[in-house]
Design a protein around this nucleic acid. Structure first.
Length: 726
DNA sequence: GAGTTTGAAACT
DNA sequence: CAGTTTCAAACTC
């Protein structure tokens, strides 16, 4: 039972402008970025890539030793990614270079990447669409053993009514551009030749084309899904779904072997739980758990024997952890690389790269304003594009999660020297961003803060700081309806005097009241003194600026604090993106988070001064810790006292207690998820205009193996939903 | 649109 | 520095 994949929509797109966001290519990306924009940029590189001109970037390893990756600089194996040399059509990276063995060794990769790289291009495939009906997707031929092609293991979006899913573009190799290599060819990258001429990339056209095709086939595929489900009781037979929860437990248990179909479903966790619940004594519980553990071990053993070719580069699913982030962050630990040499069939490469991109205050997904927000150099993190925050200062609350002092200084200098920094902002696509090789964001705080249009002063003659025009250093203008205005060029003497007086009273009278702290957050310098409004009205200068009150404030009964808020952001693995403040209460669930996230995203999108055409989600990485629900066994383990369990049993409270604790979230280590997820993907939505679109659902998680042969990478994907507004 | 509330700025 | 007044915006009706 398989779906005809021939309907999949491929199109070829040059995504090199956004390779900066491809977390899958972390080291390569960094190399490229540094190469193109770094201090050691070779003189031969006379033209930087741009939205319309990527191919001209000369990228020749022979002239830049930095591009010679040493053995510790592998880039991640990624079956979805396909890089080729656009000028010579030499394929540089063959995810499936040998279909017979699926062998893709590190050396292969090295050979490829060391090959002359004139430009980087990526093939994208538009993913299938989904409607808002809970749907399950089929096994394909190879997945009849139980590996789903796709599995949605997350709660369905809460705002899915009347929405249609963004078509997602998934980077995948197109087989027609791939070739099977002979051993000779493998050993000599210069002999590579393309199967066919690769068309000139045109991202707009390609995405548009992919979108059209996608729409054409989506309905058909969905019909097939539904039919499949109806005919085959798909849900019940899918080991993934049998124990699914929103945190990937099903997946986890499956790969522990518990639900491995090799062992039969009798060993499934659910059955074990049923057995456990029927046996009320502590001893029986222990015994059952021991049995279960044995089964699990056996299943795991069987699994390893029979599925050795699967490298479970499982990615932790998007989750909400204690820091209220929606996403796992990329992190590489020792476990991540422990298996890298275990199998030739698995290319679980070590990524020797500082994947310390933050502190989990990230979530999947990123909104970029344009593909041209590309290739900003960043030493420790990816640059981000299209950051539009909800605070009125329009300052990215947290540009990256690994901002260092240098960057902060850059930002501060930016707004201090606002008049000296504006040349590159004329390009609307790059508005607000320094396009130089500095990472600093060229957010002109002062300029923005001076944006008020007019005043209505009656008694101050507009020569007191009461007048916002005056306060912001502006003359009053045509729109002002002030009385006896002295704040104009016909009253310079008195105005200067007023300015001096104001400065005498307060040296910083005309300076921006806000600052960027070392946390890369924006705060009010002096703080507010609100008494009655809990700092939740615009009377409060902090609140009015969209900022939280701080210790600098002397307000009373303040509710505008960080306590009730946690920073959340958008990221793919390693990427940093839109960070915003989301109110997070205790025991908040993902739906609520999503809802608030959505609102914020929606708002921020609306605030965006430019028309963004592309939304992009990237995901990768895995983390040792993730938040999931406790298992029953874990709950029982916590009830260590036999008396305690018996006591609960006698009052019929055991089951409720277990249910209660089982449903509570906790950080749990999922060992399988600790491996490096080397694969990744970029999801690119075809063009949209945020002015006409609001997002009524933000996050949905799909986890699916991106390769059904080897190096099966499980990916979680953030999916945007949009609501078409008529 | 009129009246009230608010907290920063101005003043004492 | 502390208390009071002024002020224009925020807010309410």
């Amino acid at each position: 039972m398989s779906i005809n994949n021939q309907q999949s929509c491929y199109s070829f797109v040059d995504l090199s402008p956004v390779i900066n966001f491809t977390s899958c290519l972390m080291p390569v990306q960094t190399k490229i970025t540094n190469f193109l924009h770094g201090d050691n940029r070779p003189s031969t590189l006379n033209q930087l890539p741009s939205q319309n001109n990527i191919g001209s970037a000369i990228f020749d390893k022979t002239e830049d030793p930095k591009i010679n990756f040493n053995k510790n600089h592998y880039f991640a194996y990624n079956p979805n990614l396909y890089i080729f040399d656009a000028s010579s059509h030499h394929n540089l990276y063959f995810p499936h270079n040998n279909p017979e063995t699926n062998d893709f060794s590190q050396q292969d990769e090295m050979n490829h990447i060391n090959h002359k790289l004139d430009s980087v291009s990526i093939l994208v495939k538009k993913d299938i669409s989904h409607d808002n009906v809970q749907q399950q997707e089929p096994f394909d031929t190879e997945q009849e053993v139980g590996m789903p092609k796709y599995s949605n293991i997350c709660t369905p979006p809460t705002h899915s009514n009347n929405s249609d899913l963004f078509g997602m573009v998934q980077i995948q190799p197109d087989s027609k551009y791939l070739q099977t290599l002979t051993p000779t060819q493998k050993n000599n990258s210069s002999q590579y030749s393309p199967k066919s001429n690769i068309p000139t990339p045109n991202i707009t056209q390609a995405i548009s084309s992919a979108s059209d095709k996608m729409n054409q086939c989506a309905f058909s595929e969905q019909q097939q899904f539904k039919q499949l489900i109806n005919n085959n009781n798909y849900l019940n037979n899918n080991p993934i779904y049998s124990n699914q929860n929103a945190f990937g437990l099903g997946k986890q248990e499956y790969f522990q072997g518990v639900n491995n179909p090799i062992n039969g479903f009798n060993s499934s966790l659910s059955n074990n739980l049923q057995n456990i619940s029927k046996n009320k004594t502590h001893e029986n519980i222990k015994e059952e758990m021991k049995k279960r553990q044995e089964q699990l071990n056996q299943g795991q053993s069987n699994y390893q024997q029979n599925y050795n070719h699967y490298k479970i580069n499982a990615q932790s699913t998007s989750s909400i952890n204690s820091q209220a982030s929606i996403s796992s962050t990329s992190s590489i630990n020792d476990q991540s690389i422990s298996n890298q040499n275990n199998s030739n069939n698995n290319v679980c490469l070590k990524i020797n790269y500082p994947l310390q991109y933050g502190n989990s205050n990230q979530m999947h997904g990123m909104v970029v304003n344009s593909l041209t927000s590309s290739l900003l150099a960043g030493s420790s993190s990816h640059s981000v594009g299209g950051i539009y925050t909800a605070n009125k200062l329009n300052i990215p609350i947290s540009m990256t999660t690994s901002v260092n002092n240098t960057i902060v200084e850059e930002k501060e200098r930016d707004f201090k020297d606002r008049n000296q920094q504006n040349s590159k902002d004329s390009n609307s696509d790059d508005e607000g961003y320094d396009n130089s090789n500095k990472q600093a964001v060229n957010i002109d705080m002062q300029e923005f803060a001076r944006k008020v249009d007019f005043c209505k002063c009656k008694k101050s003659k507009c020569l007191k700081l009461y007048c916002e025009c005056f306060l912001r250093g502006n003359y009053c203008n045509d729109q002002c309806i002030c009385t006896e205005c002295g704040n104009n060029d016909k009253n310079l003497e008195e105005r200067e005097k007023a300015i001096d007086e104001a400065k005498t009273r307060n040296q910083d009278a005309f300076n921006l009241k806000f600052q960027i702290t070392s946390n890369s957050t924006v705060t009010h310098k002096k703080g507010c003194h609100c008494k009655r409004t809990h700092c939740l009205k615009k009377y409060c200068e902090c609140f009015n600026a969209g900022l939280k009150c701080t210790n600098n404030c002397k307000c009373e009964e303040c509710r505008n604090t960080q306590d009730g808020l946690k920073t959340m952001g958008i990221s793919g693995g390693g990427t940093s993106g839109l960070n915003t403040l989301i109110k997070v209460d205790e025991d908040v669930n993902s739906s609520e988070i999503n809802s608030q996230m959505l609102q914020s995203i929606d708002y921020q999108l609306q605030q965006g001064p430019t028309e963004r055409k592309i939304s992009m989600c990237s995901s990768t990485g895995t983390s040792g810790l993730q938040n999931r629900k406790r298992t029953r066994s874990e709950v029982l383990d916590q009830l260590t006292s036999k008396n305690e369990i018996q006591s609960l049993q006698q009052t019929d409270q055991l089951e409720p207690e277990i249910r209660k604790k089982k449903n509570s979230l906790c950080l749990k280590q999922n060992p399988q998820n600790s491996q490096v997820n080397s694969g990744s993907q970029i999801k690119i939505k075809s063009s949209y205009q945020p002015n006409q679109t609001s997002y009524n659902s933000f996050e949905q998680n799909f986890v699916y193996p991106t390769s059904n042969k080897n190096g099966a990478n499980f990916q979680s994907t953030t999916v945007f939903h949009k609501k078409i507004q008529s």
